[in-house]
Amino acid sequence: MSAPTPAREAKLFRNNRSQAVRIPADWEMPGDRVTIRRDGDRLVLEPVRRRGLLGLLASWDRLDEDLPLPDDPPPASEDVL
């Protein structure tokens, strides 16, 4: 684990009705989205990581119903290459 980076000041500004912060170029975060949460009087920003297929499937609710089997028969072995 790397040592903490010293704190720096950053500029706050208004963007329409939202407050925004200018992140220095050398602290740029990957992607174009972050999660934000409060920790006391601090705001913590974390990059949103791409979940991949397994993460997406894990986020879906399980189906509690039996799905019908298809009506079409499986292909004959000579049809499969």
Rank of each mutant, 00 (worst) to 15 (best):
G55I: 01
A3Y: 08
Q19C: 15
A10E: 06
D61N: 14
G40T: 00
D32N: 15
E46L: 07
A58E: 07
D79S: 14
L63T: 11
V21W: 04
L81M: 10
P70E: 05
D72H: 10
D32F: 13
L56E: 11
G31K: 02
L53V: 10
R50F: 15
L54H: 08
D66R: 10
M29I: 10
I36W: 02
S18P: 00
L53I: 13
Q19H: 12
G31E: 03
L53K: 04
N16Q: 10
P24E: 02
R42C: 09
L45T: 02
R37K: 08
D79C: 08
R14H: 11
P73D: 03
M1C: 06
D66K: 09
D61V: 12
S2P: 05
T5I: 13
R17A: 15
D41I: 01
A20V: 09
D66C: 14
G31M: 01
V34Y: 02
P74A: 12
K11T: 06
R42L: 04
R50E: 14
D39S: 15
S77P: 07
V44T: 06
S59I: 06
V48A: 06
L69H: 14
R33K: 06
L56Q: 09
R37A: 13
D61E: 13
D39H: 14
R38G: 03
P30R: 06
P70S: 07
T35E: 09
L53M: 05
D32K: 13
S18N: 09
R14W: 09
R50W: 14
P68V: 02
D41M: 03
W27K: 03
D41S: 15
W60R: 10
P70V: 01
G52S: 07
R8T: 04
A76P: 00
L53T: 10
D66I: 12
G55N: 01
G31L: 01
D66F: 15
G55W: 00
P4E: 03
P68Y: 01
M29Q: 14
R8S: 04
R51M: 14
W27R: 06
D71Y: 11
P30A: 09
E28M: 10
P4G: 03
V80H: 05
A25F: 06
D66A: 04
G52T: 02
L67H: 09
D41R: 07
T35A: 13
P30F: 02
E9L: 09
P74C: 07
D64N: 12
T35P: 00
M29R: 07
P73S: 03
R33G: 07
P74M: 04
V48H: 08
L57E: 02
